[in-house]
Structures are given as C-alpha cells and as structure tokens.
Simulated scan of single mutants.
Amino acid sequence: MTVPKTSVLVLDSTEPEPLARFYATLLGATVEPAGGDPDLLFVTGRCGAFLGVRRDLGAAPPSWPRPEDSQQAHLHILVASDALDEAEREAVSLGARPVAAVPNGTLDRRTDLRRYTDPAGHSFVLTAAPPVTV
C-alpha cells in the first residue's frame, strides 16, 4: 500500500512575503506559515497548498525567455477559456509581466495560452482549462 502523499512546487525568492501575497491574490488563496520553517510560506486554498515560497537570500530570477535558456519549471494556471482576458488583466494589475516567447524565431500567437513572469521573475502561464468530461 502506498503511503498517502501530496506535493507542492516551492519557488525561491529573496522576499517571499510579497511573492506569496501575489500568488494568493491571483489564485484566491491565503498565505500560511509552513509550520516549523520560518523561511517557508504556503499559498493555500480549499484543497490545501497550491504553492510554497521559500526565502533564499541568494535567489536569482530565471533568465528565461532568453533563447539559450530553459524555463526549468513554470506554473500553469488553468482558467475558463472565456475568462482568459479578465485573468490576464488581474495578473498584470498584481505585478505580472507579460513575456513574448519566440520559439524558433516565430512568435507564439495562441490566444489560449498567455506567458508571464511573476514579480520575482518566475515564469507562469494562464491557459484555458481543458473541458471537463463526465
């Protein structure tokens, strides 16, 4: 029998409090201390932790979207397809910066996927949620 587990992606940041508040506001969640670690915050919602943000005084933002660098990791935030424009306005008003990815020299012009960096430089996308099948 497998022991029940859960996982959470943790982002490093020199200033975890404002970054955790950014994601909590964007995701309609709250910021909670992570128990015994004073340098770790969890962004939590009804279903538990969405994301962790950890203090790392040496953290440097990723250099993506430079063509020679990879994203290494990024968040996909799923949104109803008819709410993408509203979600984009909300993210930008909170401090997200739009990113124009240029794979192989051509712009990605899909409207169902929007690329950004958070205020600390981590990449994330807003993308249309897949249809739910019952």
Rank of each mutant, 00 (worst) to 15 (best):
T2L: 15
T2G: 15
K5C: 13
T6Y: 00
S7I: 01
L9D: 03
L9V: 13
D12S: 11
S13W: 02
S13C: 03
P16G: 01
P16Q: 03
E17T: 11
L19K: 03
R21Q: 10
F22Q: 01
F22L: 06
A24F: 03
T25Q: 12
L26E: 01
L27F: 12
G28V: 09
A29H: 00
V31K: 02
E32F: 09
A34F: 03
G35R: 02
G36H: 12
D37F: 09
L40C: 06
F42Q: 00
F42M: 06
V43P: 02
V43K: 01
V43L: 05
T44Y: 02
G45F: 05
A49N: 05
A49M: 06
L51Y: 01
G52K: 00
G52W: 00
V53A: 00
R54I: 08
R55E: 14
D56T: 08
D56H: 10
D56F: 06
G58L: 13
W64S: 05
R66I: 07
R66H: 13
P67C: 05
D69Q: 09
S70E: 15
Q71R: 13
A73C: 13
A73P: 05
L75E: 07
I77P: 05
L78H: 11
A80K: 09
D82C: 06
D82A: 05
A83E: 12
L84A: 09
D85V: 10
D85S: 13
A87T: 01
V92M: 02
V92T: 10
L94I: 09
G95Y: 02
V99T: 06
P103H: 06
P103G: 06
N104E: 15
N104F: 14
G105P: 04
T106S: 15
L107Q: 08
L107H: 09
L107M: 10
R109S: 07
R110Y: 12
T111S: 15
D112L: 10
D112E: 15
R114E: 04
R115P: 07
T117R: 12
D118R: 01
D118Y: 00
P119S: 07
A120M: 06
G121S: 11
V125I: 01
V125D: 10
L126K: 02
A128F: 12
A129V: 08
P130K: 10
P131W: 02
T133M: 13
V134Y: 14
V134R: 15
